[in-house]
Design a binder for these strands. Sequence first.
DNA 1: TGTCTTTACTTTGACATCAAAGTAAACTCC
DNA 2: GGAGTTTACTTTGATGTCAAAGTAAAGACA
Lengths: 166, 166
Amino acid sequence: MGTARDPIELARDNWRSAGWADSSDGMALVTSVMRVQQVLLTTIDDLLRPFGLTFARFEVLMLLHFSRVGELPVGKIGERLQVHPASVTNAVNRLEGAGHVTRRPNADDGRSVLAAITAQGRALVLDAAATLNAEVFLNVPLPAAARHDLYELMRRWRSEFEDFDE
Amino acid sequence: MGTARDPIELARDNWRSAGWADSSDGMALVTSVMRVQQVLLTTIDDLLRPFGLTFARFEVLMLLHFSRVGELPVGKIGERLQVHPASVTNAVNRLEGAGHVTRRPNADDGRSVLAAITAQGRALVLDAAATLNAEVFLNVPLPAAARHDLYELMRRWRSEFEDFDE
DNA sequence: TGTCTTTACTTTGACATCAAAGTAAACTCC
DNA sequence: GGAGTTTACTTTGATGTCAAAGTAAAGACA
């Protein structure tokens, strides 16, 4: 590898020398999550750019693709993806503009809007998924056991701030 | 806990039923990182708002605070925090505007700019750090051993895409 | 010394995120 | 039926991120 020190390790040392040893591990862990996410997001968005997609939009399409009839209320999309309603509106607007999704009022609830994936959207998201599978999801650079451990630990963490069965 | 299924577990099942079992763990892990980061960032930014800071700006201040003379070239800040130069410019602009940081040309390199933390910036960032230590870094909701495992796994992951000693 | 290349920073644009605010439908209760 | 509350979505604004482009200084080489 290189010769530079890991910036996060440096920060952890600084935390300790400031008398904050108790919280230094927590700080290093939180910062690590930020860094990994940053790199992952950039990598994924780069890979999706030729498809005219971003990760956020890819996730919406993927969710609709897997839904029973390819259609969901906008609010349900937000719940499933665990993002703010305005973020769903933003993504659906972009996808609708590109012809990957259509919108219609929800007959069962006058306040609600349904987003449906188009055939074009389906074809596109499958291609995009193939790329992400090959380049990212199959390439997480850790052994399978470590990946599993990591996932389980993250799931425990998530269960502390999310309302789902654990 | 709640009664809803974990959306990421749902997604992992969908991945498998689509014939993508090999990549389903990687996908679930990547998505978990995104979710945890999202919640952490929102939590941290909420806590820092009363200080007039965001996490990005807090990190810049913290870095300057810990530097030998409280001053660093803007490019070095970007390297240490592992963010894009434009992001450093953005944060330093905001901090300078608030009087937490000053800027001056680097006498050793005419292309370079030095950012220095002010006394006001130091006082502020120590208060902010105390809050984050108490509310976030000491409160990662996992046992110490799990936190350590998680950190080590993330460090291994990071070492695969970062140029530092491992 | 002059030219070409590299380096350092800033500006601009696109992007997704959440908070706050607004609009309207649905629900609850009297 | 009407008033008050809750729910669902959208719009607007602030934010940080990176890519692309621009400006200028420094370095390398003839």
